[in-house]
Simulated scan of single mutants.
Amino acid sequence: MSPTTAALVHDYVLGELVDHFDFDLSGIAAPQSVARQQARTALSGRASREQIDDTVLVADELVGNALQHGYGVVSMTLDVYEKGVTVSVLDRGTDISAIPTAPSVDQVGNVENEGGRGLFLVAQFATAWMVQAVQGGKAVVAVFDLTGSAL
């Protein structure tokens, strides 16, 4: 059984919740742009530039995946903790069996598998991530340990 978001956060000892942001992304013309902007704003002054860039990239990827595979993005939540942040994207999809795959390249340099590369990026940049069933769909959650940042 997958851990809950609370268990995942607890596993990484991110400290107390400092700030919570909910963003309704349904029906927005450019939800990825809004997700990037909101993630950057929420972490401004709380993390290093590299940590913010990693979080922004993952937020963008999670929203893009929700648009492409999850029957539309519904919302994004950013929870900022003393030592980290979680990004959670809710969509209407019900498949919680997401598996990240590294892109494979054939002998002449062509990328062979097109699917799963986004979650591969999420797995590379986030400290941890998970998919969990929620009412009305699923949430994909990425956890970032920002130890050593400006938090």
Rank of each mutant, 00 (worst) to 15 (best):
P100L: 05
L25T: 03
L43T: 01
I28H: 09
R40W: 07
A47R: 04
F144H: 02
D11V: 05
V134A: 09
P31G: 02
A142Q: 04
V111S: 07
S75R: 13
T77P: 02
L121I: 15
V13I: 07
Q32M: 15
V9T: 10
Y81D: 03
A59T: 03
D145N: 11
L43Y: 00
L25S: 06
D106L: 08
V85M: 05
L90D: 04
T4C: 06
V58F: 06
K83D: 12
F23T: 12
T77Q: 12
S88N: 04
Q68A: 15
D145E: 09
I99G: 07
A139I: 11
V134D: 05
A98T: 12
L67G: 08
Q51E: 10
S149R: 04
R40G: 12
D11T: 13
L90W: 11
F125D: 08
A66Y: 00
A7R: 13
V18P: 05
S88W: 01
V89E: 00
P3N: 09
G64D: 10
Q51N: 11
A102I: 08
T147M: 08
A98S: 13
I96F: 06
Q107A: 15
L62P: 00
T147R: 12
L151P: 10
P103A: 07
A47V: 08
Q38S: 15
Q124L: 11
V141K: 01
Y12A: 06
I52C: 03
V143A: 02
F144W: 00
T127E: 02
R40Q: 13
V74Y: 06
V108S: 14
W129N: 01
V122E: 07
A142I: 00
A66D: 00
P31Y: 00
A30P: 01
T94H: 12
V13T: 12
G116R: 01
I52T: 10
L43K: 01
E114Y: 13
K83G: 09
I99W: 11
A29C: 07
D60M: 03
H69C: 01
S33H: 14
D11W: 07
P31E: 02
S97A: 13
V80N: 00
A123L: 10
L151W: 06
I96L: 08
A139N: 14
Y12F: 14
R40L: 07
W129E: 03
S97I: 04
D79S: 11
P3W: 08
K83L: 14
V143W: 00
D54H: 08
L121V: 15
G118S: 04
I99M: 14
A98V: 14
S104P: 00
